[in-house]
Amino acid sequence: MIKEQRYEMILEKLSNSEIQSLEKLSLDLNIPMTTLRRDLADLEARGLILKLRGGAKIISNNVVVEDKFENKVEYNIEEKKRLAQKAVKMIKANESIFLDTGSSTFYISKLLDPKLNLTIVTNSIYNVQELAKNGHTNVYLLGGKFTSITGAILGYEAIEALKNYFFDKSFLGVNAVDKNQDIFTTSSEHAQIKVEIIKHSQKAYGMADSSKYNSKSFYKFATADELELIS
């Protein structure tokens, strides 16, 4: 198991309990105690957890861990629809756009008018299904590793494919925005994709409903200077 996967498992476990003992974490997650101590030290240095004598706890409920797409798309629906409406107004006919994974970007795919004749690239199977249902024909899905929790295509192949594109506008999912306007996602794999999308976009936007603010998550991938937040 790679380090990033262990970190995600630890954070998810801690998010479900006030305090977890090191022994229980080690046993439940099948992580050797020496490795667990190093992982917890790194997570504490990032400001995500607090190490205690013989245990650990997440610093606050404002640390965001990944949830299933099916759950996220049903949460804060009206606000996400309003964000999507703002995003759609920024898109002009015949542009090339990227739609990232996430519930807010999914609502963009529901609202886009096929008459705009857009070229749309995405790494979300949910976006592809919605765009096809609504009559869009110039839709491209990145190849790579499928992640069932978010419905995302990630990994080396997806990153390499992105190097062949340039987008007029891209719309990225955001998991958390802290008080310094640093922008976070929940895994290194999602972060790597988002960084590459920003590099290959004339203008990049982050979709951040009110629940995303004053919180942190696992990986910082941008600042508000690099990614304009639609909120």
Rank of each mutant, 00 (worst) to 15 (best):
E18G: 01
I108V: 11
K194N: 04
A191W: 01
Y75L: 10
V195Q: 10
A222H: 03
K169I: 11
L141T: 00
G206R: 05
V64C: 03
E160A: 07
V88E: 05
N71P: 00
I58P: 00
L27C: 10
A45H: 11
G151V: 00
I159S: 12
D113L: 13
Y213E: 11
Y213G: 01
K80P: 10
E196Y: 02
L118E: 09
N62A: 14
S188D: 15
I77D: 07
G144C: 09
N16I: 03
Y205N: 05
A152L: 01
G102C: 07
N76M: 15
I153V: 12
I77L: 09
V139I: 12
I31M: 15
A41I: 01
R82Q: 15
S148H: 10
E79H: 12
I193W: 00
N134D: 08
S96Y: 00
K51P: 04
M9N: 15
V64L: 07
L141C: 08
I183D: 05
N94Q: 08
L48Q: 07
K72A: 13
A224G: 15
V174G: 02
S21T: 14
K72E: 13
L141P: 06
S104M: 07
K199S: 14
L162H: 04
S231A: 11
Y156W: 12
L99Q: 04
S217E: 13
Y75K: 06
Y165K: 11
K72D: 06
R37D: 07
T101Q: 08
G151M: 09
L172S: 08
L25F: 04
T185N: 06
K51E: 08
S210W: 00
E23N: 15
S201Q: 08
V64G: 03
S170F: 10
G155K: 03
E78L: 12
L99P: 00
S103G: 02
V88H: 02
D182Y: 03
N117E: 15
N175V: 01
A41V: 05
S26M: 11
D28Q: 13
G155Q: 07
D178A: 12
T223Y: 06
A224K: 13
N164M: 12
Y107L: 10
I10H: 06
K81E: 11
A84Y: 05
E130V: 13
Y165L: 09
L99D: 04
A152P: 00
